[in-house]
Design a binder for these strands. Structure first.
Lengths: 234, 234
DNA sequence: TAGTGGTCTAGACCACGGG
DNA sequence: CCGTGGTCTAGACCACTAG
C-alpha cells in the first residue's frame, strides 16, 4: 500500500480516536512529519487526499482543521455507484437477468460501433424494507466476461473490482427530475406521476474503456442525497 | 499566479487548439517538462488538477488521455453555486430582499448560537425566458457586510468573491425530490404536486466559517444536471 | 525490455495570519 | 516578527504497459 494512503488512514484514525469535530485543529505539518516519519511531500499528498474527501481543510498560516463528517442516511451521488452505506446489498431483488446484444440507445451512450454482447440486469434495491431505487444496467461482456443472477443479488461493482480484479476509474452522470410512468410507479410502490430522480450513468475502467451504463430511478419518499464539495482543486 | 495553475491552463489550451477529444493522447510527462520548463512535480500537480476537473486521466505505463468535455445545457451540481454556464445572471428576478435576524431553522443549519443579522434574498433564475430555479438565501452580515437589491440582480457569489474579495471555499449539499406546493408551483409556472429537486446548501469561507445557506427548488421541465466524477483521489 | 507514469525524499524559498 | 502552510526543484527508484 502507498505511504500517503497509509498516512491518510492514520490521520483519519487520529481524528476519530480524539473525537475531533468540525473546526477542531489537527497537528501541524512538521508534527505530522515526525509522527509518521515521512517527508513533507508525502504528508501533503495524504492531506490533499483527505481534503478531496471532505475530511479536512487547510488554512494557510493557521492550521489544518476537521471538516464535518458525512451524514448517515443520505445517499452520496458523487461517490461510486451512489450507494455506499445506505443501500444494503442484502436487500436487492433481481427483476431481470439476461444476456443480449447491446440495444441501440446504449450503443450510442457507450460509443460502441459494433454489435456487442452484454448482460442486462434490472434490479430493485431496498433499505429497511422500503424500495429505494430501480436500476437498469448494461455490462459489456468484452470487459465483464462473467456475471450471474446470483452475483447480481449482491454488489456487481464489488464483484467486478474484487472478483474480476478490474479497476473502475470514473463516471459521467446525467440527471433529471421526472414523473413516474405506471410501470415504474408500481415497482417502486408509488403512484403514477409521482416525482422521481432519474440518473443515467456511464462508467469507465482504468484505461478509459466504457464498460457499463445504467439508469437509476430513485423513490422520492425513501431517498435523500448529499454531496460534500471537495476542498481544494490542488 | 501559481506555476501549476498556469501549466494546467496551457495544457487545457493545448487540448483545445489541437482539437483533441476523448481518448486522445497528450504529450508524455518528460515532454511536458520540456515544453513548459518546469519540474516534474509541478507538471504532476497541474495534471492532478486537470484530472480532478475531469479534463484528463492518466494510465500508468501508457500515457495521459483526454476525457469527455463537460456538456453544455446541463447544470453542474458539484461546481460552486450549481449554475455556471446555464444560469444567465442577466435573467434573475429578485422577489424579496430584506435585512432580518436569522430565523431559527437557519440558525441551526449555520451553527449560530446568537441572534445574527443577515440578508435574506429570494430570487427566480431564468434561462432562455424559462424559470429554472427558485432560490431562498441567507447571508450573514458578519461576513457579508454589504449587499443590495441591485447586486442581487446579478451574481451575489461573484460580488462576494470579486467585490468583497472574500474566498468561498467549500459547501455541503443536501438534496431531495419533492412535490411542489401551490406557491412554489405558481412562481415556477408549474402545477401543484409537480416534481422538483430541492437542494439545501451550506457554504463556507476560507477559514471554515459558514456565511450562507440557501434552498434551491429546480423546475423539472427546464433543468438537467450532470456530474463528472473526478478522476483520481490524487 | 524499453517506455511511461507513480512514489518519495530533502531542502530551498514564498505567502499568509496573528500576536 | 514568527509560525504555519504553499510552491517548486532535482533526482532516485518503483510499477505498470506494451511491443
Amino acid at each position: 500500500m502507498k505511504k500517503y494512503q497509509i498516512v491518510a488512514d492514520k490521520i483519519t484514525d487520529y481524528i476519530k480516536e480524539k473525537g475531533l469535530v468540525q473546526g477542531d485543529k489537527i497537528p501541524k505539518i512538521d508534527a505530522l512529519i515526525k509522527m509518521y516519519g515521512v517527508s513533507k511531500a508525502t504528508i501533503l499528498q495524504a492531506l490533499s487526499l483527505l481534503a478531496q474527501k471532505g475530511v479536512v481543510y487547510k488554512v494557510q498560516g493557521s492550521g489544518i482543521f476537521v471538516r464535518r463528517p458525512a451524514i448517515s442516511g443520505y445517499i452520496s451521488l458523487t461517490s461510486n455507484r451512489g450507494f455506499g452505506e445506505v443501500i444494503d446489498n442484502e436487500n436487492t431483488k433481481v427483476l431481470k437477468f439476461e444476456e443480449i446484444e447491446l440495444p441501440e440507445k446504449q450503443q450510442r451512450l457507450m460509443k460502441c460501433d459494433e454489435k456487442e454482447a452484454c448482460y442486462h440486469v434490472i434490479r430493485l434495491h431496498f433499505h429497511e424494507g422500503k424500495p429505494i431505487v430501480l436500476e437498469s444496467s448494461y455490462f459489456l461482456k468484452k470487459y465483464v466476461p462473467f456475471l450471474s443472477k446470483e452475483i447480481a443479488k449482491g454488489s456487481i461493482f464489488k464483484f467486478i473490482k474484487e472478483g474480476l480484479n478490474t479497476e473502475i476509474r470514473f463516471s459521467d452522470k446525467y440527471m433529471e427530475i421526472i414523473k413516474l410512468n405506471e410501470e415504474q410507479a408500481k415497482v417502486l410502490q408509488l403512484e403514477k406521476n409521482d416525482p422521481a430522480l432519474e440518473v443515467n450513468d456511464v462508467y469507465y475502467l482504468a484505461k478509459g474503456q466504457i464498460f457499463n451504463c445504467s439508469q437509476l430511478i430513485y423513490n422520492y419518499k425513501n431517498s435523500k442525497f448529499f454531496d460534500q464539495s471537495p476542498d481544494e482543486l490542488i
